[in-house]
Simulated assay, not measured.
Amino acid sequence: MTPLQGGRSTPSLEQIPFSRPHSPHKELVLGFAGLGAMGYPMARNLATRLQSPVIAHPIYVWNRSRAKCESLQEEVGKTHIKIADKPEDLALNCDIVITNLANDEVVKGVFEKFVAALKEAQSTKNKIFVETSTVYPTLAGELDTLMSSVPHCHLVMAPVFGAPPVADAAQLIVVMAGDYRSKKEVAHLMIPAMGRKVIDLGGNLEKAPTFKLIGNSMILGSLEILAESFTLAEKSGIKPTQIHGLVKDLMPAPILDAYANKMVHDLFDGSKGFAIDGGIKDSTHIRKLAAEVNSPMPALDTAHQHLLTARALHDSKKLRGDPVYETLDWSSIVAGTRVASGLDGFDSKKHSTAGPVPE
């Protein structure tokens, strides 16, 4: 990567597999829907790192809870952020609209509002809609049918890899499928302002969410193995910190190190990571996809059950009024393996410091 002004870098062809688009005749108006744990830093980085004449300022943001919009506006200023009262405002006022939403039902509902507003306004402007959430592949086809009913509207499926801290650092990996010209336009907005690399999967929109589910299956499967190994260590009288050291020596991947650290130190705060509800939604999608294509994934089946166990345990603690965190991170999957082994799910300080050591 070559240096740019302000300390940023020019992405290479390896990072963006598209040539740079022609300079627009006018500044593009950008909108962002969904300011959750991922969407908030993504929108903030786009608002603060993209400059005129590429993007007009301020960019429009909408969230179901307006407080998130107000928080972002207060953080970066009214010159960067304009709050939309409803999602329809994004569709009508913006050239490019990016969404990052909780689940498939919410995504479809928001896109239906986009389309209804555009049809009512009889819009004929060129617009690109970019969906970055983790959804089931067939939803991409449903969204494409919706958007194709409006002239000159294009859909890009662009799910992202990376936890909230990765989004905060603008180091996400973006997977794209859809119309080539639209992907090119979007890619050069997102990289390096929001992420570090684009993976192009061609024109079939369903390929991007499929790829994302496969990637998440690798992460979730790794979490299950870590959880089982840490639990075995505790039951065998070996300190989990020693196993964490082995993870760093044997498999020095930042993502494994980060999740291992959460498990060892009971750092299950979902507000600072990937919430367990999202993990269960993703594991449900992965298992459904695996069943449809006759590709058994027994490790994912087990991981799914341990996520459900962790959530059930947490819900019970909520009912008793003593939850450790308001929302669990999916690293709390280890609670499932712990409880199955007779250990406390969320508080490793309650575990015996020296379990039985096999002869």
Results as ranks from 00 to 15, higher is better:
Pro192Asn: 12
Ser229Ile: 12
Ala233Arg: 00
Ala117Gly: 09
Lys349Ser: 15
Lys350Phe: 06
Leu189Trp: 02
Val334Arg: 15
Lys288Phe: 02
Glu224Leu: 02
Ala170Lys: 08
Gln73Asp: 02
Ala340Asp: 04
Thr134His: 05
Asn126Tyr: 14
Pro11His: 03
Ile280Phe: 09
Ala312Ile: 12
Gly202Tyr: 06
Met297Pro: 01
Met218Trp: 14
Ala84His: 03
Glu326Leu: 10
Asp266Leu: 07
Phe18Asn: 01
Ala84Gln: 01
Gly221Gln: 03
Gly203Glu: 14
Ala33Phe: 12
Ala335Arg: 04
Gly31Arg: 00
Lys239Ile: 01
Thr48Gly: 03
Pro137Gln: 07
Met218Asn: 07
Thr48Lys: 01
Gly162Glu: 05
His265Gln: 10
Gly7Thr: 06
Lys127Ala: 12
Leu205Trp: 15
Gln171Gly: 01
Leu289Ala: 14
Ala208Lys: 04
Gly342Ile: 04
Met38Thr: 05
Leu30Trp: 00
Leu146Ala: 07
Leu250Gly: 00
Pro41Cys: 14
Ala43Cys: 08
His25Thr: 13
Lys207Trp: 10
Arg287Thr: 00
Leu319Ser: 11
Ile191Val: 15
Val339Leu: 10
Glu74Pro: 01
Leu13Asp: 11
Arg181Phe: 04
Ser133Arg: 13
Ala312Trp: 12
His154Ala: 02
Ile243Asn: 01
Asp144Arg: 13
Met297Phe: 03
His152Cys: 13
Pro53Ile: 08
Thr138Asp: 14
Ser236Gln: 03
Leu30Ser: 00
Leu139Phe: 07
Trp62Tyr: 15
Ile81Asn: 06
Leu28Met: 11
Lys350Asn: 09
Leu343Cys: 08
Val324His: 14
Gly345Ala: 09
Ala167Tyr: 09
Pro164Ile: 08
Val334Ser: 10
Asn261Cys: 03
Ala340Phe: 02
Val357Met: 13
Gln5His: 11
Gly7Cys: 08
Lys127Arg: 15
